[in-house]
């Protein structure tokens, strides 16, 4: 790991997170550099979503600090974190079912006040996801699972984030759609957005990530360049379905 803290976009130092008496994150330290895709993999209940929710300010660490772009955000309210450019696309898509597709996108742009920017943002995501523009007045809850995932990502892009936190974007999608989603993720990254990617699909995640961390019951047990982890014995055993 680099010691030069200035090129770290996200820097997480030894965070401990509890749900009441449940000790969910037991001291996690990791970082993400500008322009990187970093994957966070681990089994169910390892603490991946907890990590993302702590970064987003929905949960507070009892100990530890979170830095974004050189500024501490550990205690910042979630709306300020979004305003700084850290946007999460939550697990299970979490579309506002009672709002239209268009209104969901507008909620993604809630922190933006410039109407022209919001308008161009909408045009931009409609270009990227033409399906959504066909369905812009449909209620979010009536979209198919795949369309909802597109909408969730599109909604996350609406505030032009600097860092996108993606929580299991491939969950419940057909292999073809998973392929498509990962192409889109790489594309978003190519256009300058850094990405922290949480995935069950370790194969896919490691294939597009620069670096990766393996989380096990609230602790990071392994880290390194994604290509190395793809060939790591332990990772293959636990997350890639044994020897291939």
């Amino acid at each position: 790991m680099s010691d030069n803290s200035s090129d770290k976009l996200l820097d997480i130092q030894d965070i401990h997170v509890y749900y009441g008496a449940i000790y969910a994150l037991k001291g996690i330290t990791f970082s993400l550099k500008k322009g990187e895709i970093v994957a966070l993999i681990g089994a169910n209940g390892a603490g991946k979503s907890t990590t993302l929710n702590t970064i987003s300010g929905l949960l507070r660490p009892r100990i530890g600090t979170i830095w974004f772009n050189g500024k501490e955000i550990t205690q910042s309210p979630s709306e300020e974190i979004v305003r700084k450019g850290v946007v999460q696309v939550p697990e299970g898509r979490k579309i506002f079912a009672t709002l239209s597709v268009m209104e969901n996108l507008e909620m993604g742009a809630f922190t933006q006040s410039d109407h022209a920017k919001i308008e161009s943002g909408i045009q931009h995501v409609f270009q990227r996801f033409p399906r959504l523009s066909e369905r812009k007045s449909q209620l979010g809850g009536t979209l198919s699972g795949g369309e909802q995932q597109m909408l969730a990502i599109a909604r996350g892009l609406m505030s032009a984030p600097r860092l996108l936190l993606l929580d299991e974007p491939s969950m419940g999608l057909s292999p073809l759609l998973v392929e498509q989603i990962f192409t889109i993720i790489r594309d978003i990254n190519d256009q300058g957005t850094s990405i922290l990617l949480v995935e069950q699909n370790a194969q896919m995640a490691l294939s597009i990530a620069d670096r990766a961390y393996v989380l096990e019951t609230g602790r990071i047990v392994l880290e390194g360049p994604a290509q190395d982890l793809l060939h790591n014995e332990m990772v293959i055993e636990a997350y890639l379905g044994g020897h291939q």
């Binding site: 929710n53 987003s56 300010g57 929905l58 309210p77 979630s78 709306e79 979004v82 305003r83 946007v87 999460q88 939550p90 979490k94 506002f96 909620m107 993604g108 809630f110 922190t111 909604r155 505030s159």
Partner: peptide, 9 residues
Amino acid sequence: PTARLMGIN
């Protein structure tokens, strides 16, 4: 929670 993730106060 999702509203907060949108930056809604």
